[in-house]
C-alpha cells in the first residue's frame, strides 16, 4: 500500500530540497541546527495535514505511518548534519582522511583543531545566546545560564553520565 509511506517519503524529499535551498541560497553557509530543526518539524505537520486532507479513508492509520517514515528519514539527515558541523570527533576524522598520504596526518589534524579554538567558538556561542556575559575579561554566568546549567545537571543525574564534556 504505497500511500502508507509515499507522503512521508515525499515530505522527506521536500525537506532535503528546502534544507539545500536554505543553505545555498539564503544563508550561503552552514545553517544553525535549530533552523533546520524548525524546518523539519514544520514539514512534519505538513505531511500529516496532506494525509488527513487527501486520504479520508484510514486517515489516522496513514497519517501515523507516513509521519514516522518522515520523522525517521528527516532525523537521520539531522543527525548527519549536526555531527558534520558540531562533532569534534567527526571533524578530526574528516581532516585525517583529507590529509591521508601526508606524513603524520593525525598530528597535523590535531594542530588544526586545537582545544583552544573550540573553546573560543563555544564561548562566542554562549555569549550570543545570553548564557554568559563578559565583564573585564571574565566570563560570568547569567540568570538564564544558571537555569540552563541547573537543567543540564539534573539531566546528567537522570542519565547517570557523570561530569562528561
Amino acid at each position: 500500500m504505497i500511500s502508507a509511506v509515499a507522503y512521508g517519503i515525499a515530505g522527506f524529499a521536500a525537506f532535503v530540497v528546502a534544507t539545500t535551498i536554505y543553505i545555498h541560497l539564503v544563508r550561503k553557509r552552514s545553517a544553525p541546527v535549530p533552523h533546520i530543526l524548525m524546518l523539519w518539524l514544520t514539514l512534519s505537520a505538513a505531511v500529516v495535514a496532506a494525509v488527513v486532507g487527501l486520504e479520508p479513508r484510514h486517515g489516522l492509520v496513514l497519517a501515523t505511518t507516513n509521519f514516522f517514515v518522515y520523522l525517521f528519514l528527516g532525523e537521520t539527515l539531522l543527525f548527519i548534519y549536526a555531527a558534520s558541523i558540531g562533532s569534534i570527533s567527526i571533524r578530526l576524522l574528516v581532516t585525517m582522511h583529507a590529509l591521508e598520504g601526508v606524513p603524520e596526518s593525525f598530528e597535523r589534524a590535531m594542530k588544526r583543531y586545537s582545544p583552544g579554538s573550540f573553546l573560543d567558538v563555544r564561548l562566542d556561542t554562549l555569549l550570543a545566546k545570553g548564557l554568559l556575559i563578559e565583564r573585564r575579561g571574565r566570563y560570568e554566568i547569567t540568570g538564564r545560564g544558571r537555569k540552563w546549567a541547573r537543567g543540564v545537571a539534573h539531566l546528567k543525574r537522570i542519565f547517570a553520565v557523570g561530569a562528561g564534556g
Binding site: I88, F118, L119, R122, L123, T125, L126, L131, L132, R135, R138, Y139, E140, I141, G145, R146, W148, A149, R150, V152, A153, L155, K156, F159, V161, G162, A163, G164, G165
Partner: peptide
C-alpha cells in the same frame, strides 16, 4: 547531555559566581 562541550563550560561557570 553526556559530552556537550558547551554545556560543560556552563556547568563549570555556574560554580564561579565571580566569573
Amino acid at each position: 547531555i553526556e559530552r556537550s562541550f558547551t554545556l560543560r563550560i556552563l556547568l563549570d561557570a555556574v560554580r564561579a559566581p565571580g566569573g
